[in-house]
Amino acid sequence: MKEITLGKTGIKTPQNAFGALPIQRVTMDEAVKILQRAYKGGMTFFDTARAYSDSEEKLGQAFEGMRDKIFIASKTMAKTPDEFWKQLDISLTNLKTDYLDIYQLHCVPQCYKPDDGTGMYECMLKAKEQGIIKHIGITAHNIETAFQCVQSGLYETMQFPFSYLCSEREIELVNLCKEKNVGFIAMKGLAGGLIHNSKAAMAYISKYDNVLPIWGIQKMSELEEWLKFMDEEPVLNDKISEYIEKERKELVGDFCRGCGYCMPCPKGIQINNCARMSLMLRRAPSKAWLTEDMQKEMMKIEDCINCGQCKSKCPYKLDTPALLRKNLEDYKKVLAGEVKVQ
């Protein structure tokens, strides 16, 4: 597995990193085993966040006493300086460290800049001056906000969704990061679960030598799938390229990535599952999506009051109410036996 340098941070790490959001769903013991195996298997970069419940604590438990052997990136969703410092202190305590390699402003609604009245960027500068953080990063889901942040020259890393289902605009963002020497951390490399072929996913991202994918992992079996690429790095050959092109024809367009930023719904609709149900039924064994409980969840779409909250909060500018209704129509056809699924 080739190493990449993460922009101007100078961080060198295999192009195969660990996204620690999913480990909040497993026990402490299981998480520690997975994380330590990831390190032994060659992973050195681990990305977490204050918003990921006990994910930071699990990293702290797994890597206590070996801080100099790994890179840790965390994030804050703070909107005020007071909250910034509180969250940073909690993160350091949880991770059992006195510094973070990268600290990222998490899912930002704007490009924070000096003297913008929020004080947020000034907090980053002060923390860096104190040595508490080594590098200043930012994450976004809105593509135009991401462009503003990279063009500002204020951030050393940009974390943004990127996979072989990306648009030309997202590729432009990756190329701009390379031009500006901003490290690109790729979240959602499996497009929120729509991509099932890890070899194709890795092969596609590997052609961008400035992109570091952080794979969301919560099972040892998932981890082993990524670790096998440490010795056998996938190549984007004709066969894989043809497969990717077929996938893109089926999936690219107005699809829900399942990020959940539209939640909560005032009518209790599980938007991040329900708005992509049609695709999930076609691409995954359908049993789990057709249970009595899930049928009840899907029928909640009929109670939608078209308040527009989900649409206004969608970072991808989807017409979420319309997407929900379309998915419900498809779902009813599957229940009625009019459409066959896996």
Rank of each mutant, 00 (worst) to 15 (best):
I4A: 09
G7K: 09
P14A: 11
N16T: 13
F18E: 07
L21N: 09
P22S: 07
R25W: 15
T27W: 11
E30P: 07
E30Q: 14
L35A: 05
G42S: 09
R50P: 01
R50G: 01
Y52C: 02
D54K: 14
E57H: 14
Q61S: 11
A62F: 06
M66C: 10
M66L: 14
R67N: 12
K69C: 03
I72P: 08
K75G: 09
T80E: 05
E83C: 00
F84V: 04
W85D: 00
K86V: 10
Q87F: 08
Q87S: 04
L92D: 06
T97M: 00
L100M: 09
I102Y: 06
L105D: 02
C107S: 13
C107K: 10
Q110L: 08
Q110V: 07
C111D: 08
K113S: 10
P114Y: 08
G119I: 03
M120H: 02
M124T: 06
K128M: 12
K128L: 05
K128C: 10
E129A: 13
Q130H: 06
G131Y: 12
I132Y: 14
I132V: 08
I133Q: 01
G137D: 01
I138L: 12
A146N: 05
F147I: 00
S152F: 06
T157M: 03
L165W: 05
L165M: 13
S167D: 12
E170C: 01
L173N: 01
V174P: 08
V174T: 04
K178S: 02
N181I: 00
G189H: 03
L190H: 10
H196F: 06
H196G: 06
S198H: 11
A200M: 11
Y204H: 09
S206W: 00
K207P: 04
N210Q: 07
L212K: 02
W215S: 13
W215R: 04
L223I: 08
E224F: 02
P234Y: 13
L236F: 15
N237F: 09
D238I: 02
I240Q: 11
E242V: 09
Y243Q: 15
K246H: 11
K267V: 03
N272M: 09
C274F: 01
C274E: 09
L279S: 08
L281T: 04
P285K: 13
M299E: 15
K300F: 13
N306A: 07
S312R: 13
K313A: 15
D319F: 04
T320Y: 09
P321R: 12
P321S: 04
R325T: 03
L328K: 12
K333H: 12
V334H: 10
L335Q: 05
L335E: 02
A336M: 08
Q342W: 14
